[in-house]
Design a protein around this nucleic acid. Structure first.
Lengths: 330, 330
DNA sequence: TTGTAGGCGTTATCAC
DNA sequence: GTGATAACGCCTACAA
C-alpha cells in the first residue's frame, strides 16, 4: 500500500507537506506541489479513507435509507442521488429500513459506526419519528423524502398526495363510475393516509361518502394488489372503478381482473400512483399519477450538500408537482 | 462519542480488556465480559468503523459494481446479496461501473480508498479484463456475475446464454416464423455475443443463415428497443418474429409495434430475455427467458463469504439454469 | 486474567 | 514553506 510517507520519501519532503499538497491547502510552494502530485499519480496513490475519517471525523458518505432498495419505485430516486453524489464526490451508503428505522439499529450504525455526514430517508413509517430527534441532537443533516413533517428544523421533499389522489379519483368519477374501490397501501405510511384522504374527499364532493368497505388495505407490493383485487371482485361485484395506492399494486390488480375474465377499462377502470417506467407498457397502459422521482433524488442530495457546505440551513420544505398521466386504463 | 476508553473507565478496567470482551476474544473473565457488555449497551456504544478498519485492515465491506444500480435487471440480484450480507454482517458498497471499470478509477477507490474485503462485479465489458489482474494480484476475492471467464482463479456465476437464446429463437421458428430479427444488446458485453450466437445457431439449424441485416445492435435500454423496432419495421417489413436481447428492449419494441398499428403476436411475435417482474404484465404478457437473478445475488455473496472465511478457494464456476417462460407474446 | 505500549495512515498544530 | 509531533479510536503483541 502506497502511503503519503512513501511519497514524502521520494519527493524529499515530510509527510505533512504531501498531505497539504494533495489536499490543495495553502502553504505549499507551487513547484513542490506539482512534484508531489506527479509522484502520487506515478505511484498510483489513493488515500486511505479509514485513516482520513478517523482524524477528520468526516466520512464523505451520505447514508440512504429506504424500505427496500430493490423496489422499482426507488430506482429513479437513486439515480438522481447518484448523479449529484458523483459530481460532489460523496459516497452513498445504502441501507434497507424495512419501514422501521426505530426498531433496528441501522441508524446508529450509519451515524456512529460509519459516521455518515448526512442522511436521506425515503418514506419512513409515520409512527417512527424518534430518529428525527436523534439526528437533530447530533446535528447530522438529513432530508426526508415522501414526508412532510411540520418541523422548522427538518428538510422535507414531498408531493401533495391528497390532492393527487383527489385528482385520480375525480377522473374515475368523471368517467361515470359510481362504485370506486381503493386499494390502499401500508397504513403505517404517511402517504397512504393522505392518498386515502384525497380519495375520500373526491367521493364526498360527488355526494358519495365512501364506506369503509370500499377501502382495501394492502402493502404496496404487486401481490398485495393482486389479492386485494380478488377480494374486491368477490365482495364488491358492482365496483367498476379502482384507485390503487401505487402502480405495483395496480399491476397486480390488472392481473387479477384479467384472470377473472374482465376487461380494463371496459368492465373495470383502474388508476395507479407513481408512474413507474413500466406503466406505459402494461395492458392496457396505466393511467396514473407521476411523481418526479428523479428530481426528488437530485434535490435531496443538493439540499444535503448545500447544508454540509454551510450554504443553506435546515428547514427546507419542498413540495414538488405531480402530474396526472392519462393512458388507457380508465 | 462513546469510545472503549469510556467503557473501560466505568468498568474499572483497561481499554484492551474492553476490546477483547466486546469482540469475544479469549482471555477475559466471564463476569467482567458480561459487565463490559452491559455497560456498552447502557452507554449506547457503537464501534468506530474507521478506527477499526485502520488497524485491522479489514473493512467489513463488499464492493458491488454494476453498470447502473437503478436498472431493474439488478434489483433481484441486489436483493439476494443484501439478504446474505445482512446475515453475515457485511456492508455492501455500490458503485456504478457504466460498463467500463478500466477507464474509471472506481475500482481503485473501492480497493485502496475504501479497502473492500471483496467484490461482486455484474456484467462487465468484455474487453475490460485488466481489473481481474489487479484483483488477483492484490488477492482480493471477487465474483463475476454474467461472465464465464476461462480462468482457474476467478469465480463466475452465469447462465448458458447461447443455449437460452437458441431456445428463444427456436420457439419462434416452431411457431412458423421465417424472418426473425434480433435486437441485440451492447456488443461490448460478453452475453450479447453469446445470445447472438445462440440466435444464429437456431436459424442455421433451420436452414436459414441469418444475414447481418436481421441483427439490430442496441444498448439494452427500453428506448433502444423502441428505436430498433422502428428500424426493423422500416427495413424488414416481412419480419414476423423478433428476439430481443433483454426484456427492457422488448418493452420498447412492444410499444413501437403497437404504435405502428400492429398486434402482438398476431402480426409480430416477440421474445425477450431476463423475465423482469413486469414482463408478466405487459400487453400481451411477454414470453421470455428467466434468469435466476435472486439466486445469483445469493450465491455471489455466499461464495465471497466462504472465500473470506477460508472455507473454500477461488475458482468457483457456477452455471445456473435458465427457463423459457412462455406467455402470450408469441 | 488484565494492563501497557505501539502503531494503523492521515490531518492539524505549532514550531522553525 | 516546511517539518516534527501529537492526535483520531481501535486492536494486538507482550509484559505483568
Amino acid at each position: 500500500m502506497v502511503t503519503i510517507k512513501d511519497i514524502a520519501r521520494r519527493a524529499g519532503v515530510s509527510p505533512s507537506v504531501v498531505s497539504r499538497a494533495l489536499n490543495n491547502k495553502y502553504g505549499v510552494k507551487e513547484s513542490t506541489k506539482q512534484l508531489i502530485k506527479a509522484i502520487a499519480r506515478d505511484m498510483n496513490y489513493y488515500p486511505n479513507a479509514a485513516a482520513r475519517r478517523l482524524v477528520t471525523r468526516k466520512s464523505g458518505m451520505i447514508g440512504v435509507m429506504m424500505a427496500d432498495i430493490s423496489e422499482p419505485f426507488y430506482a429513479q430516486i437513486i439515480k438522481g442521488m447518484e448523479y449529484v453524489a458523483s459530481q460532489t464526490g460523496y459516497t452513498l451508503l445504502f441501507s434497507n429500513s424495512y419501514d422501521n428505522i426505530g426498531k433496528t439499529n441501522v441508524l446508529q450504525k450509519m451515524i456512529v459506526t460509519e459516521n455518515v455526514d448526512g442522511l436521506v430517508i425515503v418514506g419512513s413509517n409515520r409512527q417512527d419519528t424518534s430518529f428525527t430527534g436523534i439526528l437533530l441532537e447530533k446535528k447530522i443533516p438529513f432530508v426526508l423524502i415522501e414526508r412532510n413533517l411540520q418541523n422548522e428544523q427538518v428538510n422535507c421533499i414531498w408531493i401533495d398526495n391528497k390532492k393527487a389522489a383527489y385528482c385520480a379519483t375525480k377522473l374515475l368519477l368523471e368517467k361515470g363510475h359510481k362504485i370506486i374501490a381503493h386499494i390502499a397501501g401500508n397504513m403505517q405510511n404517511q402517504v397512504t393516509l393522505e392518498r386515502l384522504a384525497g380519495y375520500k374527499e373526491a367521493l364526498k364532493e360527488a355526494g358519495v361518502s365512501a364506506p369503509e368497505r370500499w377501502v382495501f388495505p394492502a402493502n404496496y407490493l404487486c401481490e398485495d394488489g393482486y389479492r386485494a383485487m380478488q377480494e374486491i371482485l368477490r365482495v364488491l361485484p358492482d365496483c367498476t372503478g379502482v384507485f390503487a395506492g401505487n402502480d405495483s399494486m395496480a399491476y397486480g390488480a390488472l392481473q387479477a381482473i384479467h384472470e377473472a375474465g374482465f376487461a380494463v377499462p371496459k368492465d373495470i377502470a383502474l388508476v395507479g400512483f407513481d408512474d413507474l417506467e413500466f406503466s406505459a407498457f402494461t395492458n392496457p397502459p396505466l393511467t396514473t399519477i407521476r411523481q418526479p422521482r428523479y428530481e426528488m433524488g437530485i434535490k435531496s442530495m443538493e439540499i444535503l450538500t448545500q447544508i454540509l457546505n454551510g450554504e443553506i440551513k435546515n428547514g427546507i420544505n419542498l413540495c414538488l408537482p405531480f402530474e396526472l398521466i392519462v393512458r388507457h386504463s380508465v
